[in-house]
């Protein structure tokens, strides 16, 4: 199929497509090269004792530690629990923020009354909230899920509500000319028109939920990646920490 498609188009088009593919192949290779270069330099510096491998570790030590943790399966347990907590917070944030934004859209009075409070709650440093959560709710998975929710929820409500308000007033008027009520305006215009906003908001939420969960695990967990980071930094065993920074740094940008 693909072959006949290229046969059908002109030579210039074929050239263009080839050049395009070549460009992308080059970019991909260079990205890998940058990573390799970094790892090699790091390993070399650690070897030649230019940096202290006790604090900075080295790729080979990270790899062996990683393999150890894979072998005794502890890594998967930690990843699994963090993933579960993140997914649960993410789903709750999505559902709750949709509900709250819908209520705010329905009642302009309510949204005007609550606006300053939402702004304040959203600008609160959430990591400062985590210790309080532990005092109130104790340690445990529930606390960590709530820490995940608390980081994402207020921003999510604000941006969804703003998105809802952007819906085309003329389209809303059309619904009214067809005899629709406010409920119809919401279901037929506001909600479908906000699908892109809802989706992009969900992408942000999953990243923020992860940040919240990690913060929660720093302080109140016996399991999970956040716990692993804190544990390894406390015993100055930096190796797991570095694996994690690596996992986080590949995981987060994909969703943000």
């Amino acid at each position: 199929m693909k072959k006949t498609a290229t046969e059908l188009c002109s030579l210039e088009q074929q050239d263009y497509i080839l050049a395009h593919r070549k460009h992308h192949r080059f970019i991909r290779r260079m990205r890998i090269a940058v990573l390799l270069l970094f790892l090699i330099l790091w390993e070399a510096c650690a070897n030649k004792q230019i940096i202290d491998s006790f604090f900075f570790s080295s790729p080979s030590r990270v790899a062996s530690c990683f393999l150890d943790m894979v072998r005794d399966k502890s890594l998967f347990a930690h990843i699994g629990i963090t993933l579960l907590e993140t997914v649960v917070s993410f789903l709750l944030v999505t559902a709750l923020s949709l509900l709250a934004a819908t209520l705010l859209w329905y009642s302009r009075k309510l949204s005007e009354i609550l606006e300053p409070y939402l702004v304040v709650l959203n600008s609160l440093p959430k990591s400062a909230l985590a210790p309080l959560l532990i005092v109130w709710l104790g340690t445990g998975v529930k606390t960590i899920i709530i820490a995940g929710i608390s980081v994402a929820i207020f921003g999510a409500v604000i941006s969804l509500h703003t998105g809802f308000l952007q819906a085309d007033p003329e389209k809303q008027m059309l619904i009214r000319t067809l005899g629709g009520k406010r409920k119809d305006v919401f279901c037929k215009v506001v909600l479908p028109a906000s699908v892109p906003v809802i989706l992009s908001n969900m992408k942000v939420n999953i990243g923020l939920a992860l940040v919240g969960v990690i913060i929660g695990e720093f302080l109140a967990a016996r399991q999970g990646l956040g716990y692993l980071i804190i544990y390894s930094s406390q015993v100055f065993q930096r190796l797991p920490l570095l694996i994690q920074t690596h996992i986080l740094s590949t995981y987060l940008p994909r969703y943000l």
């Binding site: 003329e170 008027m173 059309l174 005899g179």
Partner: peptide, 26 residues
Amino acid sequence: GYMLQRDQLFEWRNIWKNVTLGLEIQ
């Protein structure tokens, strides 16, 4: 029936779903 200046057909609905929108609402 009120016809507005611009057609205001909804891009997230096909033509059939658009022309039956009023019937759906009522």
